[in-house]
Design a binder for these strands. Structure first.
Lengths: 239, 239
DNA sequence: CGTGGCGTTGAGGTCTTTCAACGAGAGTGG
DNA sequence: CCACTCTCGTTGAAAGACCTCAACGCCACG
């Protein structure tokens, strides 16, 4: 299940690295000159997960950092009695485990088949010293993650169920930036959505039904939706 | 209301800088050698605010970064209809506005009299290139802020009112790391606590009364509490 | 064709909110 | 010194949003 990614060992072109391996996830194409890429590539190892498998658990020693190259993941925390809060969903290009703390603060689980690229944390951190541009990139990402987390706090603390679901749909559509009216993929199930929005599956279902009844969205099947009235849906988010 | 901080212009000792000006907020004592401090100090300007005054508003162009040297601040976001979510409270030593985005993502308001140290963002960012250790420090802080935000998401999404209030009290006590049974300061009012925990002031009040009735805390006055039973209070957080 | 997982819908219950009244304390001014 | 007012916090009662429990339908799978 874990094998040296063949492409990475070879001195390939930056473009190839970017598109085909984890380096894409870090968007270092701009940050690193072509000649510098191999030193990052040399420490990368690809890894595959099936649906439901864990990449790591909250509290595990954070020995690796990852970039997601294919599939999607959920990041969550649990309370002692099993209540769950999903912090977010990750898609190709996103990174994981870059928190500086010594152990992972969330658990990471595959939503479907997933490919990640693994970097031993120590080697990765050494690279930061070598390539300051990489560190800047990380800081950028950390601060946009923080902004997203604050948006989510606003949602969880102050929005109604319907506003939460509408906000979630808009953000999913934006992340997949397909054209309007194109179907948007929902790789997670209703329980995941509920645990992301601080609701129950029934309330999520009712909110979706409500938005559909208002003519704002269409629900072709349980893993897709289509925005019929973008302005109306955005209004329903209460931004 | 805005004056060149006298100490900063002088080539003072690192220790003095650390304790008496904003540089303390960045904890760069370790990061910067003594000889390097003046270049940071040279661009700092101190600023004072009274209770209720705004340091900046959400959406304003983020022209400065700040460190809080005295007093406390709240950071919040608003919905169009006025609903408010407080992202967190800041105490001396904390920094503000370091997000890489071009505008502030939250509003910052003084809880009481406040002194901050202001750095023009451009100059500050130039310093990052000069002193990589400063950048590491920032990355550290960003990732621990992110961890705190995730803890708060868990609270907002999945905890009951009483659990939220108990969690809040524990975290306030921890941040002020006074010995157990010592009174802990609550510089914010009930409305601020409510907007931080995603509740109403009445529910916060009832939860506090409930915790007191259980003998877990004491409420000597409205701006202080005392932990009578630390283990019990932590149990009530449902962590 | 039965089974199990998943999503939807309905009915009733609960926790938090909303609305309202009250009290304590600070500040003001006569 | 004492009304007077205003803000803030607490408490009670009623209302409401979401949750819980239950039934049902759909679909994939064996």
């Amino acid at each position: 299940m874990e094998a040296k990614a063949p492409r990475l060992a070879t001195a390939c072109k930056a473009r190839v690295l970017c598109e085909e391996c984890a380096v894409r996830g870090l968007a270092v194409c701009g940050a690193l000159a072509q000649g510098e890429l191999p030193s990052l590539a040399a420490i990368a190892v690809s890894k595959r997960l099936e649906a439901g498998q864990m990449l790591f658990h909250e509290g595990d020693p954070a020995e690796d950092v990852f970039t997601l190259t294919d599939g999607s993941l959920k990041l969550y925390k649990l309370l002692a009695d099993g209540r769950r809060q999903i912090m977010g969903f990750l898609f190709p290009g996103d990174y994981l485990g870059l928190a500086v703390s010594r152990s992972y603060v969330c658990s990471a689980e595959a939503l479907g088949p997933v490919t990640v690229c693994r970097f031993p944390r120590r080697s990765f951190m050494r690279l930061l010293d070598e390539f300051p541009a990489l560190e800047k990139e990380l800081l950028d990402r950390a601060s946009s993650e923080l902004a997203a987390a604050q948006e989510q706090m606003l949602l969880l603390g102050r929005k109604t169920a319907r506003e939460r679901v509408a906000s979630f749909l808009v953000s999913m559509a934006d992340r997949q930036d397909v054209e309007d009216t194109a179907p948007v993929d929902l790789p997670m199930n209703r329980a995941d959505i509920a645990d992301h929005l601080g609701l129950t599956i029934e309330t999520v279902s009712r909110a979706l039904t409500g938005l559909r009844a208002k003519g704002l969205i269409e629900l072709p099947d349980k893993h897709h939706f289509r925005i019929l009235n973008r302005a109306g849906l955005e209004e329903a988010t209460a931004s």
